[in-house]
């Protein structure tokens, strides 16, 4: 299959240093669900939300997938197109992608297989009031 240059963000590379909201530094591969929850609690602008994977379909390009999420209590339907190796953080499980082998190959980031029903960490903007 054609392999276009990967333009994924660099911070998914194993060993990348991530700063939590309280200033603590952690490697991307060491992040836990609690790190996201606690960072969002501190944040004045962002709140954590859960996004459940409802569908995974082929995207328009060979290496892309369309993932449909049901977001938050209102179950807002959101569809995103990402490369198959794009990792999402699943509550209680950790990094997961549609093609974990490719994620591991490209980023050296251990991943589980992202499946329908998985609940991913996502963010929404807090209401200003």
């Amino acid at each position: 299959s054609p392999s276009s240059p990967v333009a994924l963000p660099p911070f998914f590379m194993r060993g990348s240093i991530i700063q939590l909201a309280d200033g603590e530094l952690k490697r991307v591969e060491d992040l836990k669900t609690e790190d996201f929850i606690q960072s969002a609690e501190i944040s004045s602008e962002l709140k954590i939300d859960s996004s459940t994977v409802e569908r995974i379909d082929c995207g328009q390009s060979p290496n892309a997938v369309l993932i449909q999420f049901s977001v938050g209590e209102l179950k807002a339907q959101v569809c995103v197109e990402v490369l198959v190796e794009y990792p999402f953080f699943v509550f209680g499980q950790g990094w997961s992608s549609c093609c974990p082998d490719r994620t591991t190959q490209l980023f050296e980031l251990s991943c589980a297989k992202l499946c329908v029903g998985d609940v991913c960490v996502s963010l929404t903007l807090r209401s200003l009031r």
Binding site: P9, P10, F11, F12, S16, I17, I18, Q19, L20, A21, L25, V28, L31, D35, F36, S39, S43, L46, D49, S51, F69, V71, G72, A76, V78, V80, F88, F89, C120, V121, S122, L123, T124, L125, S127, R129
Partner: peptide, 25 residues
């Protein structure tokens, strides 16, 4: 092996997709 003098640090929220931003009055 050359140790980099400065290592980029990324904010935690970079790793999380923003989905369905909410705006309410």
């Amino acid at each position: 092996n050359v140790e980099p003098r400065s290592v980029p640090v990324f904010p935690w929220h970079s790793l999380v997709p923003f989905l369905a931003p909410t705006q309410s009055d």
